[in-house]
């Protein structure tokens, strides 16, 4: 039963992903590889759409993944699965929350999980990098043909622009601009 499976997979993500929306990315990549419900390409599009639309990024990605897997019922099951652990935890812990947040053991746990979370997102980012910058089908045409030079240049330009603090570029704006650049310079051709 795919809807139950979706709920279960996203329940696990809601329970183990710590550190906000992008922290769900390594888990989604895992689901993608283990189940084949959606492709790597779809996964990258999912991030783009989730960053460019309102709402929490993690929820947007869960909804998209659920929809890609099993249509509207899938979207609903994945999203409910991802928020169910939070509901259970907060309702159970409500009274102890303040004590929970200052507990030394809890602090030590998160001291360990946070660097791991950064590492996992970085490793998943590597997968995105491969899809975006490398064109492995073209490897017979020589080393230079493997790189997507246009994409590399755009990624570097956006990274540099995001780094300029006083510009405060919103992700949605960066995405809109790169869509326009992609169309004008025919990135997919």
């Amino acid at each position: 039963m795919i809807l139950l499976q979706l709920f279960y997979e996203f329940f696990k993500i809601g329970l183990f992903a710590v550190g906000g929306g992008l922290a769900t990315l390594p888990f989604l990549e895992r689901v993608c590889e283990a189940t084949g419900w959606f492709s790597h390409q779809t996964l990258v599009d999912m991030i783009a759409v989730s960053e460019a639309t309102p709402g929490p990024i993690g929820i947007n990605m869960a909804t998209y993944a659920g929809y890609a897997t099993a249509g509207i019922p899938g979207a609903i099951c994945a999203t409910l699965g991802e928020i169910a652990p939070s509901m259970i935890m907060v309702v159970l812990l409500a009274r102890f929350l303040k004590a929970f947040a200052v507990n030394p053991t809890v602090k030590a746990i998160f001291y360990g999980i946070r660097p791991a979370s950064v590492a996992l997102i970085a490793a998943a980012g590597f997968g995105v990098l491969k899809i975006t910058l490398l064109n492995l089908d073209a490897s017979s045409e020589g080393l230079l043909a493997i790189f997507q030079w246009k994409s590399l240049a755009l990624a570097l330009a956006i990274f540099a622009a995001l780094d300029i603090k006083k510009w405060k570029i919103h992700p949605a704006l960066a995405i809109a601009c790169s869509a326009a650049i992609g169309i004008v310079f025919r990135f997919a051709e």
Binding site: D45, A122, S151, A155, I183, E189
Partner: peptide, 29 residues
Amino acid sequence: RIVQNAFAGIRACVLALIVNAILKLRKGA
């Protein structure tokens, strides 16, 4: 075509956004 071109551009942007997010998360982690 036009949707494919747009998303090829967007994917490059997503890469930059992920790297940017990792650098931000790094500070607290």
